[in-house]
Amino acid sequence: MRTTLKTIKIFLFLTVLTGIIYPLLVTGIAQVAFPDKANGSLITDNHKIIGSILIGQSFDSAIYFSSRPSAVRYNPLPSGGTNYGLTNALLREQVENRRQQFITFNQLDRTTEVPSEMVFASASGLDPHISPRAALLQVNRIANARNYNNEQKTKLIECIDSLTASAQFSFLGKERINVLLLNLELEKISSTLKQ
């Protein structure tokens, strides 16, 4: 009985230490040091939150860059992938459909190699990135849909270049571009050139 009491006591003590004090301490420090990041790297526009830099959104319209395919259609509750194995016929079918769709939607040549992240769904279903090449392949379609002139189109390509994140410390991760940020830039290009 004494042992049981001892056990309960130490369990409670460690619970308070690691389950309350520790997370509160980390929260305190993170909220002071990196408040934006600790709160989800949210983007606001006119005092309205329009998303998080880290969380992808789905873009179906022709005037926006498309995100990657997502098993959860960019609904974060809950996140996840398709979990299809490579020998699953559904996956093969999906990949072929997406490949053709990407080509048709972007008015590309039949033989264009579609970047693999645009035909395969991501792990989280919320992947905010695509490769710079996948963005470049969408430029013509967007320029047409938005009636851009050549100058605007050049600006758009420059924009892709400047938003491209290279590998961290030149060896960590892949070259990538944030689709949400890119689409927000699009709005800016359109509005400046209207004036």
């Binding site: 929260t27 990041k37 600790a38 709160n39 329009i50 998080s52 689409n183 927000l184």
Partner: peptide
């Protein structure tokens, strides 16, 4: 957290996406 892992006690954030649909961020 400095890289962007969240650490807060807020309620889930409802946002209106660029295309106008609702997204709830945990």
């Amino acid at each position: 957290a400095g890289q962007g892992v969240i650490q807060n006690f807020k309620t889930y954030e409802t946002v209106q996406t660029v295309e106008g649909s609702l997204q709830i961020l945990p």
